[in-house]
Design a protein around this nucleic acid. Structure first.
Lengths: 340, 340
DNA sequence: AGCTTTACTGAAACCGGTTTCAAGCAATGA
DNA sequence: TCATTGCTTGAAACCGGTTTCAGTAAAGCT
């Protein structure tokens, strides 16, 4: 009787299978490598039975060593607690599985140091390609990695890096939001964003917001980050007199959470006194107040596209960096019905 | 000028470093293996410089092959879209990093077939240990894997498997919920659970609920799963006459989401007409209606504990399977204040 | 029948490391 | 002075596969 957690029999190797089947390692290797048509039927059958009998599974590490193909894809995620990341990752994983790849996900918790560490780790495990949701600092490391293996950026571009990019059409999304808010009668807007931090998508949203405001004579707008004096600045916005009804525009799901929390803490009735539109569509949006109007990102497709793009490169596709910018989809709920 | 995605220079190997430093592979291996004190200072210095100059990083796959230590931990997650899973995973990852392990996460999307596939994949990558949030079907595979490497179950036990388990003290959590509901004056309860499916934690919660109800003369209770005729059955419960004020008890975060959605669809004002308490504490609970009362699981600690438990086994700890049952923490919000 | 293909298989080198074993050499002890 | 010891190091085997190359046997061709 084995005690639990007692790794007993060490794994069956190709040599044991070879011996059991009365053939050489090479022949077994050909069998598991898919060159089955090279083998005589009788031989293949003997090997098949030996494998079955012994419960043999080839060691991918060893295969990868000589072959250079580990069938491993690495993914760097800046913040695994952000539902956007999880949703994209889900898409990537689905695509990976369909193509026989295994995904190794590393979360950096928004730490530059951990990003470095994880990149090094993934490299050392010989991943064939990388899908990166990076902080964007220290482009040097990414650059040198990109000279070694294909890489696809998700959501965040890196100036110095000529890599494929999959993300949202931020300009379009922000414009959709502004159009919607304006049409619903809101005039005094506040864009709430997580700290910009050099994160390209956040910066793009802010830039598009400011540009949009500048183009719209009816609208007034400010930008606020969810750190430092967030609470006080938000209060300032809420009590200041402006050109008309006020609305918040949360630049992503996390910002929506912070903003809504803060509104509640201030005692606002959601969303009778102030409008809200949020980028990302989280599953609890419908449940808050009269429901939060959202600009949904096609997260699953973003993930799948990122992988397919990578696969393309893995198969040898050359050429300049490609950009896939998906459109956001407006989902109207109660939070953008003035005086609820 | 390299085009993008052009994997150029193949990686530097130990032999090149050895040559550059004028020593043998073995010596370099000792250097990177941490046996630095074995080497003469001058030698170590030359190697260090060669490594630096060439940008050498050892290939973990190759190391793992001979050494048997891949420094890889595999984790199977039943549903990555469930925030509970993500939170636990975050804990596991943190612990992994601190101990120099890399985590490979596989999501089964609640599919038995995918679970098999991923288990096989993880095995083939020579992960040193497994953290498993399993569906619990086909125990055979898990069993045979467990004879090869250490394994820790998370949240869900498997009868036939004598493995360490980390999870919640479900009986205690349910009792806390019942006590709280009863104290707040609720009398007619409905436990809302995702489909039982053989998932041990769900079954335990249901069993504890039924046992608790049976012990409490004041309370009446039923159980409902969020599939099939969920909508209709919920309506039945809501309109039926019972022994007193009604409350829902969501057995986890996903159930809380379904239940709240359905209540809204029915036009209930949250939570003036009906109480709600939910297992798991998701970040949006405070935002819904008057806030959802929760029983928080220490998810981060569960993850960390799972890893540490595994590490223990990796270091050779023997002995019977251990169970770590954490207590849930009651967080009272508006959803359990009768008549709002 | 003799020669060329074709089909199938095995020996050995190799992937990038680790580890064992023994050897070289200086320092120590008797 | 000679044997012993300890410190460094390299050669070679090994991990579990893949791949090249060559060899054997059967089949096809003239």
């Amino acid at each position: 009787m084995n005690g639990p957690s007692l790794p007993t029999r060490s794994r069956v190797t190709i040599s044991e299978v070879a011996e059991a089947a009365g053939v050489s390692k090479a022949t077994v290797s050909r069998y598991i490598g898919g060159d089955r048509q090279l083998l005589a039927d009788a031989t293949a059958l003997r090997i098949e039975q030996a494998i079955e009998r012994l419960g043999y599974r080839p060691n991918q590490m060893a295969r990868g060593l000589k072959r250079g193909r580990t069938r491993l894809i690495g993914m760097i995620v800046a913040d695994i607690l952000n539902p956007y990341s999880v949703a994209v990752m889900h898409g990537v994983e689905t695509a990976c599985r369909q193509h026989g790849y295994t995904l190794v996900v590393c979360n950096t918790d928004r730490s530059t140091e951990q990003e470095s560490q994880h990149l090094a780790a993934l490299r050392s495990y010989n991943v064939e390609g990388l899908i990166v949701n990076t902080l964007g600092h220290h482009a040097g490391e990414l650059l040198s990695l990109h000279s070694e293996l294909p890489m696809v950026l998700v959501d965040r571009k890196v100036e110095a890096l000529q890599a494929d990019l999959v993300g949202l059409d931020n300009r379009d999304a922000v414009q959709q939001a502004l159009d919607h808010l304006q049409q619903r009668g809101y005039r005094d807007l506040l864009l709430v964003s997580e700290p910009l931090d050099g994160t390209s998508s956040r910066q793009e949203r802010v830039a598009a917001f400011e540009a949009g405001i500048a183009r719209s004579p009816l609208l007034q707008g400010r930008v606020l980050q969810t750190d430092g004096a967030f609470r006080e600045s938000l209060r300032d916005f809420l009590v200041a007199s402006g050109p008309g009804p006020k609305a918040l525009f949360a630049a992503n799901g996390m910002a929506a959470l912070s903003a809504t929390r803060q509104l509640r803490e201030f005692g606002y009735r959601l969303f009778e006194e102030i409008g809200l539109i949020a980028l990302d569509d989280l599953d609890w949006y419908p449940l808050v107040g009269s429901g939060i109007t959202a600009l949904a990102q096609p997260t699953e497709r973003i993930g799948v596209t990122a992988f397919e793009c990578l696969l393309d490169r893995l198969r040898g596709a050359r050429g300049p960096a490609r950009h896939f910018d998906f459109k956001a989809q407006l989902i109207v709920r109660g939070s953008t019905h003035p005086r609820g």
